[in-house]
């Protein structure tokens, strides 16, 4: 401190201050302050930081809302569409959520039973049952044109029809699907409940042949007469009407009751 005092010359300092009035030009001041402001984007940062945080929160919120909405309407749509048009409610979510590969696989599993759904409506309307095994391959063919549908002949056999339909129904459950498939199926909400309904709606068509095989002859109305001609008349009529199972029952019951076979041709 004393050194500072010793090295201080008041006269020289006074003279120096008298001559030291110059200042930097204003344009240099402006350039420097501009550079200082430009170097610090702090004010912009202050705006950006909260807006980024807000945007992040918004994105998360929106995605969460969409996720929730994504599940609820789908389940609702499936539930709502069940009594009316189930094929649409099944096919649409699959198209929107799955990629093409998954879509094909899903349709492979879903559209076949879905094609049977209109049958349930027509059944309720009292119309004759159309052949479900024909409508399923048609739908199947439209969704997968690159693959040839199985020949309808394979469906004519009762056993093969039963097996095929059963496989088509049980395939989505048993078959190993991708996680996305499983997830989408769960999200769609048509898992067990829907499959159960599909089985129900398909049951008459699928099990028709097995019912024919296990036709309970005790439940049918038999001729009261012991006349072979009358029995034969019933038999012939049943055959003409295509009621083969009834005709077989007549033959079987006649054999059991009279100890001899019902003659297929009577000499009239």
């Amino acid at each position: 401190m004393s050194d500072n005092h010793d090295l201080h010359d008041k006269q020289i300092s006074r003279l120096y201050k008298l001559g030291s009035k110059t200042e930097p030009p204003h344009h240099i001041d402006a350039e420097i302050t501009h550079a200082a402001h430009a170097a610090i984007p702090g004010q912009r940062r202050r705006f950006i930081r909260p807006s980024l945080a807000t945007a992040a929160v918004l994105v998360l919120s929106i995605s969460l809302v969409f996720k929730v909405l994504d599940q609820e309407p789908l389940e609702k749509s499936v539930m709502d569409s069940l009594p009316t048009d189930q094929s649409d409610s099944i096919a649409q979510p699959a198209e929107s959520e799955l990629d093409t590969h998954v879509l094909v696989k899903t349709k492979e599993k879903v559209t076949a039973p879905a094609a049977v759904m209109p049958d349930a409506d027509t059944t309720r309307a009292g119309k004759p049952l159309p052949q479900p095994q024909r409508s399923a391959p048609k739908k199947y063919q439209t969704t997968r044109p690159e693959q040839k549908p199985k020949p309808p002949a394979a469906f004519k056999q009762d056993d093969s029809l039963g097996k095929t339909q059963t496989q088509m129904l049980s395939a989505p459950i048993k078959e190993e699907g991708t996680k996305l498939q499983k997830k989408s199926r769960m999200q769609l909400g048509y898992g067990k409940r829907l499959l159960r309904q599909k089985r129900k709606s398909m049951a008459p068509a699928v099990t028709a042949s097995s019912i024919l095989e296990r036709f309970d002859c005790k439940t049918i109305q038999l001729p009261d007469s012991n006349s072979a001609a009358e029995w034969h008349h019933h038999y012939k009529t049943a055959m003409e009407q295509g009621q083969e199972q009834y005709a077989n029952c007549l033959k079987q019951t006649y054999l059991e009751r009279f100890g001899k076979a019902l003659p297929e041709h009577l000499n009239e």
Binding site: T22, E23, P24, D29, I32, T33, A36, H37, I40, P41, G42, Q43, R45, R46
Partner: peptide, 18 residues
């Protein structure tokens, strides 16, 4: 100024410019 207050720089510059 380091934290982004450009007004602080202006004040600092005004003090030391001459």
């Amino acid at each position: 100024y380091r934290t982004g207050d450009t007004a602080a720089f202006d004040s600092l510059y005004g003090r030391h410019r001459g």
